[in-house]
């Protein structure tokens, strides 16, 4: 393997790292779904696997086509093949993704909705989850709700944050355009404003979304590991005391 080739493989992996499992809102690389990346000149081949033979075809298709698209934008790439292994719909999915078909064309009798609806629905769940994490972080850092909720997207980008905060902010801003008109930094999923005195209730409400995704993430990691006889991929740490404290109503705030 040449050095150039290794560099290209790393580029492909970095591109794949930005592809998420829509349900879990986590990178397919971190989830240990990717089993192989081969590069020969401008030809790239990616193989992946899922926690069960039954994993929903629509999500599987969505991930496969997202992987294809993420790799295809690299400037040196001429051809991308994405191959799913060990799944009940391997042929339909692999052929459909290779031919650039819509999900509905690949599964003409079963699919009743194009993937865009699913993508939007799960994109909004991801929006809520990332928003909740960022809001709790800001509250824990002592920002007052009325101040946070008045921020514009540009204003939020200028707020001075620690490393964790910057990471949460970047993740949130990726999803922000999905929900309602800019420039407000924080709106609910249907684009409405969040009033400062309802923030605690709002956070309680959206917490179910994140909790659900975390629960599924733990389940999927366990199933994948059991299926392939490996140790589970690293789990995000279980929430500790600090997370519980963050969930508490914010203490007296500084402005």
């Amino acid at each position: 393997m040449t050095v150039t080739n290794q560099a290209r493989i790393d580029e492909v992996r970095a591109a794949l790292d930005r592809v998420t499992d829509p349900e879990l809102d986590e990178s397919v690389v971190e989830l240990n779904f990717i089993t192989g990346i081969d590069v020969a000149g401008g030809d790239v081949s990616v193989t992946f696997r899922l926690p069960t033979y039954w994993c929903a075809a629509n999500f599987s298709y969505l991930m496969a086509s997202d992987m294809r698209d993420a790799v295809a934008v690299l400037p040196w790439v001429e051809k991308v093949a994405v191959v799913l292994d060990d799944h009940m719909f391997v042929d339909t999915i692999n052929d459909g993704v290779a031919a650039g078909k819509d999900f509905a064309d690949a599964f003409p009798t079963e699919a009743q909705m194009d993937l865009s609806g699913i993508r939007l629905n799960f994109g909004l769940k991801s929006f809520e989850r990332r928003q909740e994490a960022l809001l709790r972080h800001l509250l824990a850092e002592g920002f007052e709700p009325s101040v946070i909720l008045q921020l514009t997207v540009d204003g939020l980008a200028r707020v001075s944050l620690n490393e964790e905060g910057r990471k949460l902010r970047a993740r949130y801003l990726e999803r922000r355009p999905l929900a309602g008109p800019l420039p407000a930094a924080f709106v609910s999923r249907d684009g409405t404003e969040i009033a400062p005195d309802t923030l605690t209730a709002y956070l309680r409400n959206v917490r179910r979304v994140g909790l659900n995704a975390e629960f599924n993430g733990a389940l999927c990691r366990g199933l994948l590991a059991a299926r392939y006889g490996e140790a589970p991929a690293v789990l995000p740490a279980e929430p500790g005391l600090i997370d519980f404290l963050r969930m508490a109503p914010p203490p007296a705030q500084r402005v």
């Binding site: 926690p51 069960t52 033979y53 039954w54 009940m88 389940l219 366990g222 199933l223 590991a225 059991a226 299926r227 589970p232």
Partner: peptide, 14 residues
């Protein structure tokens, strides 16, 4: 076969 394997995955994972 895959169905029972999947159940077994739940069993051994949790």
């Amino acid at each position: 076969k895959q169905f029972i394997d999947c159940f077994f995955g739940y069993h051994s994972a949790l």
